[in-house]
């Protein structure tokens, strides 16, 4: 579906994306995670053909993306500013334009979504609140039915009820019209159940690409007397440590085999799961 080979993006002396090889099979929902400045927006822009790679290639169904209308008409990127048209446009104008540019655009679905988000066609884009602008951008993104649809933190400013509506519609429309979605987000706890796979970018590099449930299984917290815990985790990949009096809790990454688990039982150590957001924080350098 979409692949990159040795894809690089530089801004002057700064490297925003280091050579990146990516393979995203189609008809899945991907979550793109990364701390501020990790390169998420740069990656999405270059995948959408908004930006020319400094080196390497982006291929969409085998064809280059940049300056190739046959690819870009089938790709929709909703940017985090939610500006899907000119501020002076009313929403009808923006939807008409989207319907012209996007072969699979469904005007009936757009009208239905507009209604559910409490928006009207006469409103001017520039007069919408931040949350309304995001909701409208999501209407455009979903109704485009583009084979590759990417939302760059498209939920910014939206209240909890509207975010839930977004998630419900995303799943409903994905089931009815399977296609590829990439969502960048910092709302890890809230949105990760929607994802089949997560990609974690860190400092312009792909830190990992993993099924979400596999990621969950790889993180384990080990709790017990400090010395016993230290001995137990020797040789394992330790992401973080916390001590409270004589008790220590260590987060290890990579999963534990049955033998280790049995050993933990013998030493009366407590093993527990780790939340995806905690894993993410630890994997990307921890809390400063």
């Amino acid at each position: 579906m979409i692949t990159t080979s040795a894809l690089q993006v530089r801004f002057g002396d700064t490297t925003a994306l280091h050579p990146l090889d990516l393979d995203l099979p189609g008809e899945r929902i991907y979550g793109l995670l990364g701390r501020n400045g990790a390169g998420k927006t740069t990656l999405l822009s270059v995948l959408a053909g908004f930006r020319k790679p400094s080196a390497g290639a982006v291929l969409f169904d085998g064809a280059p993306v940049f300056e190739n209308v046959r690819s870009t008409s089938r790709i929709c990127l909703i940017r985090d500013d939610g500006m899907v048209g000119d501020g002076t446009d009313n929403l009808r104008d923006v939807l008409d334009m989207a319907a012209m540019l996007r072969p699979a655009f469904d005007s009936g679905y757009a009208a239905e979504l507009l209604d559910r988000f409490g928006l009207t066609r006469k409103q001017r884009l520039g007069a919408l609140s931040r949350g309304q602008r995001s909701a409208f951008a999501i209407v455009v993104g979903l109704a485009s039915r583009a084979p590759l649809t990417m939302f760059d933190e498209a939920h910014l400013g939206m209240d909890a009820a509207n975010r839930q509506l977004f998630h419900d519609e995303l799943l409903r429309d994905y089931l009815a019209h399977p296609r590829t979605f990439v969502l960048s987000t910092h709302l890890i706890e809230e949105q990760s159940p929607l994802f089949e796979q997560v990609l974690i970018l860190h400092e312009g590099r792909l830190l990992l690409q993993s099924d979400l449930d596999e990621l969950r299984e790889r993180g384990v917290s080990v709790t017990g007397p400090a010395q016993v815990v230290d001995d137990f985790v020797y040789g394992l990949k330790v992401l973080s440590e916390r001590t409270l009096g004589p008790t220590k809790q260590v987060t290890v990454f990579g999963g534990l085999d049955d033998e280790r688990r049995a050993l933990a039982g013998r030493y009366a150590l407590e093993l527990g799961p780790v939340a995806v957001q905690d894993l993410f924080i630890h994997l990307t350098g921890g809390v400063p």
Partner: peptide, 17 residues
């Protein structure tokens, strides 16, 4: 699987698994 995914707001692949 699809009813489950929509009802619980989870990825259908997760439900299928």
């Amino acid at each position: 699987t699809n009813q489950y995914a929509a009802y619980y707001r989870i990825n259908p692949a997760t439900a299928a698994k």
